[in-house]
Nucleic acid binder design. Structure first.
Lengths: 182, 182
DNA sequence: CTTACCATGTAAGGCGTTACATGATTCA
DNA sequence: TGAATCATGTAACGCCTTACATGGTAAG
């Protein structure tokens, strides 16, 4: 125990409230989970295979679809495994920011380059924030009917707040560097 | 080109303004860079060896010390390599938050467990924030003499702002979940 | 004298991405 | 009919951590 691989847990988590194909799982990662988690096909498909072998999920072919879709469902053991992992304390939260790394060594190349990196970061965040704001709206709207989305909403709120803070910092950092330069 | 390993760049960055031992490099990672980067001895020492082999750094024994210290310095080629990397656009900033992941699947175990995870996160952040605030003070104090620390200061400001935002979110998220529960 | 810290390193193995390989279906 | 998207998978490889192995020194 306690060796729960994260990829297994994410997949089981997603399967815990709906059946999904590997492709759909990847899509969830690239949208709902994007702001705090990610995974590639190269880790998803082998993990799915492994989950089935261990009896934590089952696989079946989709009869309705003309594509050769494989639909995965969580088993009771899978749900048990997930629940056990969920109450375990968090092991590690990671933040690896290359932008800050380059900024940290900014002396070597000077303010102009540092400002460029900050602006690129700013653009990236500014581009993603609207998606989070729209998700917030959608979730708030459907919350009365379905309270199961409150946890999703909380992660979205986290994303919005931190992204807004990032943008504030970008503004201030740029101003600071421009002052220094003058 | 463009295959610059991050570990090499961080080390060269640190060596770019002072000579350091592998041990000291690790210490820098665990203090100044901690909030946005990390590395273990298992990657630092082999990387140092590699940098020397490629002529990007030099190694010498410390005569003064009784310990068998190996002091590393950056070479001109090393500085050139670093500078080239610094102006390249940032490839990827990563945020992998297990806390948010567990929260996202909070439905499975309910509000109590979700609150526990938020509180653990809150404690961790609240414990680290004071170090950042002290670093901010120190840096502001020495900034008039030595302007080279402005970039360091900017990363500290980033840390402070985001950490404060995290704490705000924790408070709100907890309140929200407690309301829901009632 | 013993604990904490300084100091260097290796080996095994885990985890994950990238690139490749393949092909169906939908929509304009 | 061509592009975008749906859909599944593998192989190679890279990067990194963990655990192990070793020993010196400083301070109480």
């Amino acid at each position: 125990m306690a060796n729960e691989k994260k990829i297994d847990c994410v997949i089981l988590g997603l399967l815990s409230h709906e059946e999904l194909t590997g492709y759909e799982i990847k899509k969830r990662m690239d949208t709902s989970l994007k702001y705090f988690w990610n995974a590639s096909y190269g880790s998803i498909y082998p993990a799915l295979n492994d989950l089935v072998n261990r009896g934590l999920a089952t696989r079946r072919e989709d009869g309705k679809s003309k594509r050769n879709k494989l639909i995965y469902s969580i088993t009771d053991e899978g749900r048990h495994y997930l629940k056990k992992w969920l109450i375990l304390p968090v092991e590690k939260d990671e933040f690896r920011c290359e932008t800050l790394l380059k900024l940290f060594f900014g002396n070597e190349q000077g303010a102009e380059h540092a400002i460029s990196h900050i602006e690129a970061f700013e653009r990236k965040i500014a581009k993603e924030l609207p998606y989070l704001l729209r998700a917030e709206e959608t979730l708030n709207a459907c919350l009365e009917e379905d309270t199961s989305h409150i946890y999703y909403l909380l992660t979205v709120e986290f994303g919005i707040k931190t992204y807004q803070t990032y943008l504030e910092w970008c503004k201030e950092a740029k101003e600071f560097l421009k002052e220094q330069r003058a």
